[in-house]
Design a protein around this nucleic acid. Sequence first.
DNA 1: CATGTCATTCAATCCGTACTGAACATATTA
DNA 2: TAATATGTTCAGTACGGATTGAATGACATG
Lengths: 175, 175
Amino acid sequence: MKKQRSDIKRDVINLAGMGFSRFSLSPIAGQIYALLYMSEGPVTLNDMVRELKISKGSASMNIRSLESWGAVRKLWVNSDRKDYYEANPDIKTIALKRFKEGMSKRLDELAPALEKAGDSALKGDVPGKDAQFYRVRLNEIKKLMDALRKAVEIIPDSASDKKLEIISNIISVFK
Amino acid sequence: MKKQRSDIKRDVINLAGMGFSRFSLSPIAGQIYALLYMSEGPVTLNDMVRELKISKGSASMNIRSLESWGAVRKLWVNSDRKDYYEANPDIKTIALKRFKEGMSKRLDELAPALEKAGDSALKGDVPGKDAQFYRVRLNEIKKLMDALRKAVEIIPDSASDKKLEIISNIISVFK
DNA sequence: CATGTCATTCAATCCGTACTGAACATATTA
DNA sequence: TAATATGTTCAGTACGGATTGAATGACATG
């Protein structure tokens, strides 16, 4: 007899799957995380495969992503050969860190293309009268990128970070 | 004789295409915006098609997205029947607004799924001893969603907003 | 009112990313 | 050592969102 998952567990798994995909993360990673998050005991790869009806390959890949993000931990249970996992329950810190790292990474990927444009601006291949216009616009782009970088930098790494507390207080001023 | 686009214009178009796609927006919208941003005069649909080598359909769809975001404006040139467009040059405000609206929309889309989980938690279908555990975890999820909502709410709508100025000053404290 | 010009729509197609499932590697047990 | 249990890899595939291009609509002009 197959154990029936409760409605609420199923709903949270759904929610997390949707949530992850909305924010450009693998929905299966979301489902797996939610399964662990809503499970009191440790969970194995095969549990995930069975409960979420996904392939073992996908479970393996996604659980290792989650592990690399610090969202789940591998446990030693008895001396069992199976890998057991549990969720890091600090969802706010996980979300904060993922967001920050995601933004950082995206900005980093754009840096070479921005630099290339800067180089081209220095070379004298611009039709004279447009040169000044181009330089001004390119400079605005650089300023935007810098502003984005700085905004990302001040994001705290943890929800328990003092910075976040301070920022929260500031937010309340605007409320 | 086909007019040769300068390297810098080409590079910025590239950058914007990459940038948009990295942030889950249509790369062609990015290219179109960049083309207008780096053009002193107004630009027509056919200019876009020719310079970016894209289909007219795509140009039409994407320019209207950009228009709806306030990133470009339609112009009346003479009494020409053609649509002429120019870029709104305030890229910081555009980025800010797009980011805020994107986040809002994503969170809104998740609300029904979250509510559903809340409803399930109230129904007495949970295996008794797990009920408390589930409620605690679900509550943490609600708190995360609330925190995200509030964080998005305080994002200013414009780069010239006083709020942003204040926030910038605060940032400098953490620098 | 026929022709040319332009923008829009939408079904078909393309493309990138994520998932599957089979083959493999490794470890345990009989 | 064979049989079983487990995790990983990766080539093939499936899926969703973006793009194409042909058909359509709307408008001006000779």
